[in-house]
Amino acid sequence: MKISPLHTTRSTFRDVSTLHISSPAFEPNGIIPSRFTCDGANVNPPLDIIDIPAVTKSLALIMDDPDAPIRPWVHWLVWNIPVAHHIKEDTLFKEQGINDFRENRYGGPCPPYGVHHYFFKLYALDIQLTLTPRTDKKGLERAMDGHVVAYGELVGRYMRR
């Protein structure tokens, strides 16, 4: 399933290149280990990133669950991630937005029932963002609009036992 990076018109993204994002902890569309969920240590998984454009000034990440009952559930919002090819497990970022757990941190998968899909959506930006810790997903998407130079996503699955 391909999702438009910011739910805007395709013409906005015609020049956006592809970031390749993976994790040594799970395969694409694979099962996210419980360590990275509410049933474990609830820390972010490590992520590897390749094909970051040279013009990139910062990275931003949105992790959400489109299988949530009412609307996509936001698990993690981060911006002004330094341009690097690796995000370590259990990274505490300085600039994080408010997730749907009402926290400024990673909130791991914790589906109420069944298998849910978790999208790690990574954006390469041509700017640094100036946002407050109260910023939500819509606010982050608005701030990124027009500044995305590359986009990639990694999907993992999880079901509580």
Rank of each mutant, 00 (worst) to 15 (best):
2 K>S: 15
3 I>K: 08
3 I>H: 06
5 P>F: 11
5 P>T: 07
8 T>N: 04
9 T>F: 06
14 R>Y: 04
17 S>A: 12
18 T>P: 01
21 I>S: 08
24 P>S: 11
27 E>M: 14
27 E>H: 14
27 E>D: 15
32 I>T: 13
40 G>I: 13
41 A>Q: 15
42 N>Y: 10
43 V>E: 02
46 P>F: 03
46 P>R: 03
46 P>L: 02
49 I>G: 04
50 I>V: 15
51 D>K: 11
53 P>W: 14
55 V>I: 13
55 V>D: 14
56 T>A: 14
59 L>A: 13
60 A>G: 07
67 D>T: 08
69 P>E: 09
71 R>H: 09
83 V>K: 03
85 H>M: 00
86 H>E: 05
87 I>L: 03
93 F>P: 03
95 E>H: 06
95 E>R: 08
97 G>R: 03
99 N>D: 10
101 F>I: 01
101 F>V: 05
102 R>H: 15
107 G>A: 13
114 G>K: 07
114 G>P: 12
116 H>M: 11
117 H>Y: 09
118 Y>A: 13
118 Y>D: 05
118 Y>V: 08
123 Y>R: 07
124 A>D: 03
126 D>Y: 03
129 L>I: 06
132 T>S: 14
133 P>F: 05
134 R>P: 00
135 T>H: 06
136 D>W: 02
136 D>H: 07
136 D>P: 02
137 K>F: 04
138 K>Q: 13
139 G>D: 01
140 L>R: 07
142 R>C: 03
143 A>I: 08
147 H>E: 02
150 A>P: 06
150 A>K: 04
150 A>R: 04
151 Y>K: 06
153 E>W: 00
154 L>P: 05
154 L>Q: 10
155 V>T: 14
157 R>E: 08
157 R>Q: 10
